[in-house]
Design a protein around this nucleic acid. Sequence first.
RNA 1: GCCGGCGUAGCUCAACCGGUAGAGCAACCGCCUUGUAAGCGGUAGGUUGCGGGUUCAAAUCCCGCCGCUGGCUCCA
Length: 629
Amino acid sequence: MVELVLPEEKVQFPRGTTLGQVAETLAPAAVAARVNGRLVDLTYPLVEDAEVEFITDGSPEGLEILRHSTAHVMAQAVKRLFPGTRFGIGPAIENGFYYDFDLPEPFSSDDLTRIEEEMKKIIEADLPFKRQELGKEEALEIFGGDVYKKELIEDLPDESVSIYSQGEFVDLCRGPHLPSTGYIKAFKLVNVAGAYWRGDSSRPMLQRIYGVAFPTQEELADHLHMLEEAAKRDHRRLGKELDLFSIHEEGPGFPFFHPKGMVLRNLLEDFWREVHIKRGYKEIKTPIILSEQLWRQSGHWDHYKDNMYFTTIDDATYAIKPMNCPGAMLVYKERLHSYREFPLRLAEMGLVHRHELSGVLHGLMRVRCFTQDDAHIFMLPSQIKDEISGIIDLVDYVYRQVFGFEYRVELSTRPENSMGSDEVWERATTALKEALEERGMEYTINEGDGAFYGPKIDFHLRDCLGRTWQCGTIQLDFLMPERFDLVYVGEDGERHRPVMIHRVVLGSIERFIGILIEHYAGAFPLWLAPVQVRVLTVGERHVEHASALEQKMSEAGIRVETDLRSEKVGYKIREAQVHQIPYMVVVGDKEVESGTLSIRHRRQGDLGAMSLEEFIERVENETRSKQGD
RNA sequence: GCCGGCGUAGCUCAACCGGUAGAGCAACCGCCUUGUAAGCGGUAGGUUGCGGGUUCAAAUCCCGCCGCUGGCUCCA
């Protein structure tokens, strides 16, 4: 007998009993199990006492298994329909799975439908997933004909590898898998995309089919519905509908801001200045075009040239800045600094241009020119941790407390093409790590993704479809001060080298606005709304009264406009609602007589009558509080 | 940059297998003078992204380019 310790109880079973047999009575909904901390299939035989926890398809691990198994079924279907196909990898991802295939002809959308049909047959046949362990040599005999699988097997560290089969299909796989294909209840293939083998652009491009999979049809339908809803809050769509910005063929990746978009942008910048002044930043502005020589000195020429634009003035080469740091260096060097000034925080709303690959441009999220809410902070080595901690605090204040965003933190370490010694990198990376840990921040490590001059902490925000975008970043830099021979006079009267931080909070104003649009679905909180109030007339005889109200509110600092057209009130309200205008003021005979206002709120509906003074106060309070609906 | 998809009126979309471009909304004009999410009628609006080719005939088929887009790679 073996003794199994389950979360709720202890049970005994004859030696050799499989987990599946145990699950029949104890956990009928199980799809896999965790035995002594390791995920295994239900076919796993119990040969010794163990701690066992069953996994259902509703749990995160269970979902991952479900999705991974669905990827195998898709691969099987593809192999049946396209026999010569070679196979890459096929993991589970958020909401679904993908599998990479190499075949001469591209998949069409009809092919996806055919593959789905074939998958349904495989699921209906309820083929069991069978695990087998074998030596690498044996595995190479089975998969050796497939260059990709061969490479995967050769790269595996262990001597034995596991393979899974369902019906006639065999795949190299660590597992675990569902007991059988019949466990798959709800899936859909969503799109095909090119993907380089192992993410390396110098290697062949495979065709990746993406699918989604859920435990039930309802959850699948909910997910697809969620995607439709998300598309409605896409900033590219709302940007057009709300007349905030546009991007033209004449300037791919170079956005234009319209009057309403500029109101939003200026309000965001006003807020940014207010916050930064309070935290001891001084604002500077440096030129967009600077001599190529400067960029050679900074190291950008060697490490960032491919992303830069150049121009010629009087036979000399100049670069259009992709970053603001060299400009800030020149400002720092303008005079001698004392340690008493430190930390010296020089902020800059800097417009930078970067040559991004045409295929990656995306609305306001990834563009070729953008404004960074940059700052360069010069300080003593002993001030590093406090300063970083202060920036983390600022980012959290802006993201979470003001805008209510959830965000993710990453620590990026030394990339391949970088400057400086290992010691310097080690010191800088440790400093960032310690600042994060002292604050108890959760973070993931992104190996090799740092800037060429130093490691960084990145703050990521999500868009409506759940894609994450890097916004804030804190980059520690021991190198640029070296390159520019920056000095300060210390307590001892000697000259020393300062340490520098590059940091942005919003990241790019453009990207941040994109995130804001999607976060609020265009319904900006009152303090950011391009138009806060629209005054609507009932009939022509109310025009004069409405215009007078507009003027009074405008004088009170409210962003107000009027709709004086000879249209029905319902029509005007609908239009104001569609444009997400927070307050509508209806002016008719009643209001002209009584001298009160009829207020409608875009979410709460008709608020009834109040005086102009009351309404102005309400708007002012709500604006000041920065609260949303 | 690479792989796939897409590009028709200001917007959203239609036009069977090639037969010569149409609807709703918006705009404009008029009627209605209107009370909390779409009143009615009319007018105008297109070298079908651009350039070639095939054909008696191309929005439709083929080639090249541009742009957008889903990914990959890269980054705020």
